[in-house]
Structure formats: structure tokens, C-alpha cells
Design a protein around this nucleic acid. Structure first.
Length: 708
DNA sequence: GACCTGCTGCGGTTTG
């Protein structure tokens, strides 16, 4: 019995909660974590009690009377830390264990209190760990030199991202200041690659996966409303209103602009028919206080219905209580994202989740069906792992040098080389990058010691140093000295222009360019705001599934009649082809004899294919939504040169060098890559922005098939 | 058309 294994204060907590039994992941975690010091990945569906699964045995096991923080909980979001704080504090009720939030918005007094009495549990973000290493290395040592457990929440959001490489490096640096080994527990509902998840701890052999495969029942319905303009069609809005007005709903329209459009229009309809007024918009450009209020409102609404239009800000595990329905407008970018979003509904009492998907284009519908089918098959895309993250290595190099206020050259190289975050980067490469940083005054070599150089001082002392992702400049939108949110610099920002923000309509009264502020007053009608972003990359497995769906005649019982008709209609585009998806790709000849290649390949592969065409002087444009490359060449000519393309990749480096020199903005995907020597920039461009390996396979694997 | 995430220390002022 797992219950009997736990310590008495924890058992008391469990009795008070009146839990009749543990969830499977909790029972397993209690048994395994208590019996060994292995690392564990706890993989189980959303709302299955993973936080308790990790904390119950750890709080039982760890001796908190030792000095120093014993348990470090790392989260990708401040909002999640604030949310988990109350849960963890409650768990610690009978234990006399201090729980401290440590992030950029946490109270300084609480941090100071912890520094005076270093003990207990700390909830922190990766960036705050980074900042502590850089500015207060002594504090880091005082606090975190006696760790027993590190818990990483929503670990999938780190795997395969720059932020994940940074966190790996920080885990290594934390281990360096500890005399004994701490254990790592990773939590997630959507792991696409267990070996990558194990690698994330740095000790894959000592890491075990505890997996509860049971899935939640989901009632899914797909509906179709054709959209021809940039605005959502009115019939869709009316249907959406009826579907949502008597429920607690989350609506995911995939972009901040559309989030505003949905929130404003639903509220307008509701006002007209005398419905409730609880319509909100929740995304990164909404003021933080407003977002917290919305989360609080949702969590505490027992009787009130509400609809929150949101982006991926409400995708991760922030507890917003029980939601009746999740409404997705067009397809998600990934299966993982779909799972997370659907998991937001039916959290209580094991009720089924409800998903309603509105498609507005045939290709959006096909992608949505593909994601849904793959999810049903239990498939999740694999994370996109960068084997040699030179840019993050550069960032960590600066962080380490600053942290030590100067460090012996050999010592620096040794620390970087032994860091498992950079295990595929050779020592010669590390030395070359350090030498380059010295040559551009970012670092300085004094006798045998490396210190931060003149140029480097500006970089490491900037507030922007602690993150590995970029942020864009924007205007603060202010009404009556209340901050509503922000909008980027765009041609839309003109005095007198009306726009949506935070589910309301505003007129721009005054633009203060110097202070990046816009004064607004309430208005009645306007436009959705323009935001610039670059969505997520779509994985090849989704595209391949779309192809299979389109050349099959399979019926899907969750589609409404219009959706089924639209799918049948799109299938006609490929019905003239006799095609084997394992070996062929369709080339549609247009009326002007130019052609459209449907690659059914992932975003990075499409970019590489398109670029290779351009290098051969063949102009073309990608339409990512349909994975189509429209090519300015006669089909027969393309077929003739098709087999030569893989050989063009061999000499790609020189071409990419020219590209970087001519259009340096192409490196914008990498915040720290700009400081690297050219050959390393090329390598990043080759693997993070493009995917030439899979493009090469594409040309070799597939032959083109033309329609008649 | 097209997502998201996070962050300092200091000196000064105000508040209880």
C-alpha cells in the first residue's frame, strides 16, 4: 500500500483531503521515488495529480532539518509557480517546511527571508536561476548546494527548445555546486520521445519513465464554416455564440489578433441578445493583472458561465478550474498542443473532455483531422533537437565568466566541455568560439584568466541577458492610466484608428513615440490588432498524415456534413493522381503551365526545398497552410533536374554565408547566434531554420507524379 | 496572414 509508505504528516494530509485512492501515477511515483534515488519522468494525462505524485513521496522522504534548500521546483511560467505555490504550501501544512516563490515578480522580502534561513522548497524559473548564477553566485551556493530533488514541471515545454538547452546547462551548473548528487523528477502529459526526456536529466541510464497510458474520453465534433475574408465568417460566430453562451469555455483561435476578434464579437452578440458579459481575451499582449484576474475569475466561477478566447497562454497547467468545453478554431500546430488544450476540459469527476473544432479552410480542416487521428493513434511529434547548440553555449560561456568574475582559460573550457547540454560540441569548437569572443572584445584574455570584455560588459549587464529568446518592442496601450496591454509598431497605429484589445474596442487618441505609449478611449467598432509572429513549425508526420487522409476515402464520424463535403472536395484535387505516398509527391500543372508541388513535408524541410530551388534560379513561393510550393518552371524541366538537387546541398555552406551577409536578419531565430563566428552561424541556420538533411532525403525518396 | 515563455541592482521616495 503506497499510503503506508508515506510519513505521518503526509498521511494526515491525505486523510484530510478524504482521498479514497491514489491515481495510478501517484501510486507508482510514491513506491518508486521512496525506494530509490533514481531520476523519474512522470508521464500521465492532464489533471491526473502529477504535482502530488512528485511532492508526496519527496516531502515524505527528505529531511528538511538540514540546512540549504532541499527541493527545487522549476517551472516554465511565473503563473504556474504562483498557482502551484498554494498547492505545495498546503501539502507542507503539517511539516513545518518553508515554501518560497523565487521569480522576477516575487517579493524581495520573501527572497531575503529565505537567504537568512536557507531551507525548504523553492519554486523558480530557469531565468531566475540564471540571474542568480550571474549576479549572486554566492547566494546560489548558499541556497542550492545541498539539494536532494529538482522537479521540472511541464518538462515537454523545455525538451527540444533553446530554453531547454539553457535549463540543461543550469542543471549541470547546479550539480557542480552540490557535493552529492540530487535527483530529478520531470512531469508532463505529452512526451513525444522518452529517450529525449531521459537525456534531459543528463543521466539517461539512471532515469526511469513512469507512464500512465490511460487516456481521457473525449467527445469531439468538427464543424465547417468557409472563410473567404480575413475576418471570421458571421455564421461561425453565431454558431460559436450558441455553443458557448451557456457553458464555461476556452476558445483557441491560434493568433492574438483572432483572439481579440472572437472576444469582441461574442460580447457584441451577447449584449444584443441580453446574455452574460463574461467574455475575455487572454494572451501575451494583455496586461498581466488582467490576465491574473481572468484566471482567478475562471477558477472561482461556480455558477457563472464564461468564455475566454486565448492563445497558448492557457495551454499549460495553470489551474483555471473546470471548463466544460474547449473550442479550437482551425488546426493546432502540433499534436502536443492539441492534447494540452483538450486536457483543459472535463478536469473534475473524470467527466469526458469536450472538443469542438471549427474549420474555416479545407486545408485547416485536413490538418485538424490529421492531428486528431494521430492523437487517437497515440502518436505525438518528436521534439526537434538541435545537436550542437552553439548559440546557447555562447550565452552560457558569458554567464559562467561573469559568474566567476574571471576564470582560468582551461577551467572555463573544462566546465563547458563537461556540461551535458553541450555534449556534442567538440573542445576545439569551444576554444574557437572563446577565441572569437576575445577577438571581438566580448571576452578579454588577461594572463591566463578570461574576463568579460569591454563590449561584453554591455551584454551581460543588460536586463535582457538572462533569457535565450528574443522579445519585440511594442506600445503600451493606456486608458485613463490603466494599462490594457500592448500592440507592436505597425502601420495600424495611427491617431483616430480603432482597434480591439482585451475584449474591448478603443480609439487611439495620442501616440507618444518616445515613451512607447498610446492613450486610448472606449469606442464601439474597430479592427483586430496586427501582431507579428511566426507561428510554430509543423512536423512532417502531420503533413504525411494529411496526405494519407487526402488520398484515402476514409470517413470520419466526428465531421459534420459540411466538413465531410469539404474534405471530399479537396480530395478531388488529388484524385487524378495514381500515387503511393511512400514514393511519390504530386505535381499539379497549372493553367499557365507552371506547377505546384505538394510536398506534404514539415515547415523546415519546405524552407530548405524552396531555398534550393531559388539557388538554381527557380523562383517559387511556399504556401505553408497547404504545404505547397508554387514553382516558376515547366513541370517537365523540374522533373529533369529533380535528381540533381541532393548534390547541390554539398556546397550549401558558401551560399548560406552569402545569405547571412546579405540578409543578416535571417539569423533572428537565434538571439545569441549573432555573436558567433560565421561557420557556426551557418551551422545553426542549416539546422534550426532549414532542414537540409530531410530535404535531401525528400529529393531521393520521392519522385514527382503529374496529373493529366 | 503567423504562439509562447522571462529578467538586475541600485538609489530614491513613500508609507506604516
Amino acid at each position: 500500500m503506497p499510503y503506508n509508505l508515506l510519513s505521518e504528516p503526509i498521511r494526515k494530509y491525505i486523510r484530510e483531503q478524504r482521498w479514497e485512492q491514489f491515481r495510478p501515477i501517484q501510486a507508482a511515483a510514491i513506491k518508486y521515488i521512496l525506494e530509490s534515488d533514481n531520476n523519474y519522468i512522470l508521464a500521465s494525462k492532464t489533471a491526473s495529480g502529477k504535482t502530488e505524485a512528485a511532492f508526496l513521496p519527496i516531502l515524505s522522504k527528505v529531511n528538511f532539518s538540514e540546512t540549504g534548500v532541499q527541493v527545487l521546483y522549476i517551472s516554465p511560467l511565473i503563473a504556474l509557480i504562483n498557482d502551484q505555490f498554494y498547492r505545495v504550501e498546503k501539502l507542507c501544512e503539517h511539516l513545518d517546511v518553508k515554501v518560497t516563490k523565487w521569480h522576477g515578480e516575487a517579493k524581495r522580502s520573501q527572497k531575503e527571508r529565505l537567504l537568512k534561513d536557507t531551507s525548504g522548497v523553492v519554486l523558480i524559473t530557469p531565468e531566475s536561476i540564471e540571474a542568480m548564477f550571474v549576479n549572486k553566485p554566492y547566494d546560489a551556493k548558499q541556497l542550492f548546494a545541498n539539494l536532494k530533488y529538482v522537479i521540472i514541471d511541464e518538462i515537454h515545454s523545455f525538451i527540444g527548445s533553446d530554453r531547454g538547452v539553457q535549463l540543461k546547462s543550469l542543471l549541470h551548473r547546479l550539480q557542480e555546486i552540490n557535493t552529492s548528487q540530487f535527483s530529478i523528477i520531470g512531469l508532463s502529459a505529452t512526451i513525444g520521445d522518452y529517450s529525449e526526456a531521459k537525456d534531459f536529466t543528463g543521466r539517461p541510464d539512471n532515469t526511469k519513465v513512469l507512464l500512465d497510458r490511460s487516456a481521457k474520453d473525449i467527445d469531439a465534433y468538427f464543424r465547417y464554416f468557409a472563410s473567404h475574408a480575413s475576418e471570421l465568417p458571421l455564421p461561425l460566430m453565431k454558431d460559436l455564440y450558441l455553443e458557448s453562451c451557456n457553458s464555461k469555455c476556452l476558445i483557441f483561435p491560434n493568433s492574438r489578433g483572432k483572439v481579440e476578434e472572437v472576444a469582441v464579437k461574442l460580447l457584441k452578440i451577447s449584449n444584443r441578445v441580453g446574455g452574460h458579459t463574461n467574455y475575455f481575451s487572454h494572451h501575451s499582449s494583455i496586461n498581466k493583472d488582467t490576465r491574473e484576474y481572468i484566471e482567478y475569475f475562471a477558477k472561482n466561477s461556480v455558477r457563472h458561465h464564461f468564455s475566454i478566447a486565448c492563445t497558448s497562454t492557457l495551454e499549460l497547467g495553470i489551474d483555471i478550474g473546470s471548463v466544460d468545453k474547449v473550442i479550437q478554431i482551425d488546426a493546432t500546430n502540433s499534436i502536443s498542443s492539441l492534447i494540452q488544450r483538450v486536457g483543459r476540459s472535463g478536469r473534475k469527476d473524470n467527466k469526458p473532455s469536450n472538443l469542438i473544432l471549427y474549420a474555416t479552410t479545407p486545408w485547416g480542416l485536413t490538418q485538424a483531422v490529421a492531428c486528431w487521428e494521430l492523437h487517437q493513434e497515440g502518436v505525438i511529434e518528436h521534439p526537434d533537437i538541435v545537436q550542437r547548440p552553439y548559440d546557447i553555449l555562447l550565452h552560457q560561456t558569458l554567464s559562467i565568466v561573469k559568474s566567476f568574475s574571471g576564470i582560468q582559460y582551461n577551467e572555463l573550457c573544462k566546465r563547458l566541455k563537461s556540461n551535458f547540454a553541450f555534449k556534442n560540441i567538440a573542445i576545439e569548437e569551444i576554444e574557437e568560439i572563446i577565441q572569437h569572443l576575445i577577438s571581438v572584445d566580448i571576452l578579454e584574455h588577461i594572463q591566463s584568466e578570461i574576463i568579460i570584455g569591454v563590449t561584453g560588459e554591455y551584454i551581460v549587464n543588460s536586463r535582457d541577458f538572462y533569457t535565450v529568446f528574443t522579445s519585440t518592442e511594442s506600445f503600451k496601450v493606456i486608458n485613463n492610466s490603466n494599462i490594457i496591454g500592448d500592440v507592436p509598431f505597425s502601420p495600424q497605429i495611427i491617431e483616430g484608428e480603432n482597434l480591439f484589445l482585451s475584449a474591448r474596442v478603443w480609439t487611439i487618441m495620442n501616440i507618444d513615440i518616445q515613451h512607447c505609449r498610446i492613450e486610448v478611449v472606449a469606442a464601439n467598432d474597430g479592427k483586430k490588432p496586427m501582431y507579428f509572429g511566426s507561428g510554430g513549425n509543423i512536423d512532417t508526420i502531420i503533413r504525411e498524415k494529411m496526405f494519407n487522409i487526402l488520398i484515402s476515402s476514409q470517413k470520419f464520424d466526428y465531421l459534420d456534413d459540411t466538413s465531410a463535403l469539404e474534405l471530399t472536395e479537396l480530395r478531388k484535387l488529388f484524385s487524378p493522381f495514381v500515387i503511393d505516398p511512400e514514393h511519390h509527391r504530386p505535381l499539379v500543372i497549372n493553367s499557365d503551365l507552371k506547377c505546384s508541388l505538394y510536398t506534404f513535408a514539415g515547415t523546415k524541410t519546405n524552407r530548405a526545398i524552396s531555398y534550393l530551388f531559388k539557388l538554381q534560379g527557380i523562383s517559387n513561393t511556399i504556401d505553408e497552410s497547404s504545404s505547397k510550393i508554387e514553382i516558376d518552371i515547366l513541370a517537365d524541366n523540374l522533373v529533369k533536374i529533380w535528381s540533381k538537387f541532393p548534390s547541390y546541398i554539398k556546397s550549401i555552406d558558401k551560399k548560406l554565408e552569402v545569405l547571412i551577409e546579405k540578409a543578416p536578419n535571417i539569423m533572428d531565430f537565434s538571439k545569441w547566434g549573432v555573436h558567433l563566428p560565421m561557420n557556426y552561424k551557418i551551422d545553426l541556420l542549416k539546422h534550426k531554420y532549414y532542414d537540409f538533411e530531410s530535404a535531401s532525403q525528400f529529393f531521393s525518396k520521392y519522385t514527382l507524379v503529374q496529373n493529366d
